[in-house]
């Protein structure tokens, strides 16, 4: 038992926690993006429900719906592989903050007489109809993990952790 604990402590201490965080965040974005890519029109229609695109930019929604899942696929794959780790972690953290704000705004639009945590709708996240509080909790966990990756100093088990200013690529030491 204590040997298992010691092993776990040694693993997490040696960058295992950051590796796990990277795999979870990158993997989650990758998986959800693939689900969105199966039905681009459905994703476009769901995005429209958020009513975020200003009237003077009628094609902005098309660009968001077409590009966002592919950006998530690419950046998710880079994060899993450990390439440009901080840049990707920052991108996902920013996306998660934006998604969560949009989610709250849409939920408040739909609220009527319901308690906030009873609101369910298709958030366009690729998971169909979801409970808003559960989704916000998921986003919060992913955001914490993204920040953990962002502020991880060791950056171990990465193919090329830094694209900018890197003198040498770090491999799985």
């Amino acid at each position: 038992m204590s040997a298992g604990r010691a092993l776990a402590r040694s693993f997490f201490g040696a960058g295992g926690l950051a590796l796990a965080a990277r795999l979870i965040v990158g993997g989650a974005f990758l998986a959800l993006a693939v689900l969105k890519l199966r039905d681009p029109v459905g994703f476009l229609k769901t995005l429209r429900e958020y009513d975020l695109a200003p009237a003077f930019l009628p094609h902005l929604l098309n660009y968001c719906a077409a590009l966002l899942p592919w950006v998530e696929v690419l950046c998710g794959a880079l994060l899993v592989l450990g390439i440009a780790v901080r840049g990707n972690a920052l991108l996902f953290a920013a996306l998660l903050v934006f998604f969560s704000a949009a989610l709250v705004s849409r939920a408040l639009d739909l609220q009527q007489d319901l308690p906030f945590c009873a609101i369910k709708f298709d958030c366009g996240c690729g998971q169909g109809v979801v409970n808003v509080c559960r989704k916000l909790a998921e986003n919060a966990v992913l955001l914490l993990l993204s920040l953990l990756v962002l502020f991880d100093r060791a950056q171990r088990f990465c193919l090329r952790p830094r694209l900018v200013g890197a003198r040498a690529a770090t491999t799985g030491r």
Binding site: A66, L67, V71, L78, A84, R86, G87, L90, R162, V164
Partner: peptide
């Protein structure tokens, strides 16, 4: 460095996403 890396990632990802679409 992190902000620059973020910009590089975005600058590479967006054209690739346009091509994929």
């Amino acid at each position: 460095r992190t902000l620059l890396e973020f910009a590089v990632v975005a600058a590479v990802a967006v054209p690739l996403a346009l091509a994929a679409n």
